[in-house]
Design a protein around this nucleic acid. Structure first.
Lengths: 161, 161
DNA sequence: GATCCCATACTCGGATAGTTGATGTCCGAGTGAGAGGGG
DNA sequence: CCCCTCTCACTCGGACATCAACTATCCGAGTATGGGATC
């Protein structure tokens, strides 16, 4: 029922990338040290983001990651599903069809009523995450943090090349 | 990210119980065979429901489970959380505090902005499940299924004592 | 000074473990209902 | 006919085994950059 921690890391990395100039690459190592997480494992999350087309990557020295789209075009749901895969809390195994007092030829409505309810809840969850993107979050952060704090962060990341 | 299948079983069992006369106990064995799931493992889910006060239980022969409240007072969220425990998809590990270019004395807002967004999504999910209860579902079922189908089901369960 | 080559730093992908949690099974203890025997 | 006891079916709770997924870690292959060597 809980998302893997790579999701948290991916979200924080995307936010960090959205603070940088759009054409700058940042290495996995820099992102890992910045967030205090294991570099090699974080790499898996970033690879998932790259595979989903949310970030660009370049090889070699000065290589690394940068956002592949504008911050307003990357929703939280995009990031979560890139790392976690398709998100669905409920998996219906159709146990209603095991009912021993119904004939095998009995007709069933196309979807189990219980599954329908659970899916509705999942949809509400996704809707909430789709409505939030990196640009909105960035604006919240610039309101909350001092310019100095933000600047120090971006400088630190860019100096680590 | 996925709920355990005990949640599905618990939901179906509660719906079945809500179809029965309120004072009738049904054994684990009957519920397990009715749904085609392992009896001993289903028992764990039912115990969780009993612990949460959603169902009553009696020992001995003719023992079993019955609803402890009126169907309209048992929401889907009650059942899900009884079996699954507190539901939360996102666990914030506060990696924002690992930022190496902030002093240790730096002040942080009480909640990580990213966690706030994720929690909002979780709340939307819970709100949806809180709005659905056993009575509403039961009314949906009586509309959808024939009286004969429902009657057969309750008779089968009651005859298995 | 221009060109070529090589070392370096990085990403990518696969292989490999350890740990946790879900899934499922088994068994003994406790309990209450009903049957059967004795008064 | 009444009461006691015994058996049985059931729940409860813990112990145990299995399996999948998450959480890492490590290493080799491939690639682009930049510096140094060569012409």
């Amino acid at each position: 029922m809980i998302l893997r921690n790579q999701v948290e890391w991916a979200l924080h990395c995307c936010v960090a990338l959205s603070e940088l100039p759009a054409d700058q690459y940042v290495s996995t190592k820099a992102l890992a040290e910045f967030h205090g997480v294991p570099k090699e494992y974080l790499s898996k999350a970033l690879q998932a983001l790259a595979q989903a087309g949310l970030v660009d990557t370049t090889l070699g020295p000065t290589g690394g990651y940068r956002l592949a789209k504008r911050p307003e075009d990357i929703s939280f749901l995009d990031i979560v599903e890139a790392v976690e895969g398709p998100t669905q809390t409920f998996k219906c195994t159709e146990i209603r069809k095991n009912n021993p007092c119904l004939k095998k030829t009995a007709k069933f409505s196309p979807m189990c009523s219980i599954a329908k309810v659970m899916n509705r809840a999942d949809e509400a969850w996704k809707r909430e995450l789709r409505s939030m993107n990196l640009k909105i979050l960035r604006e919240e952060l610039t309101d909350k943090l001092s310019d100095d704090q933000l600047q120090k962060g971006t400088d630190w990341l860019l100096s680590r090349r």
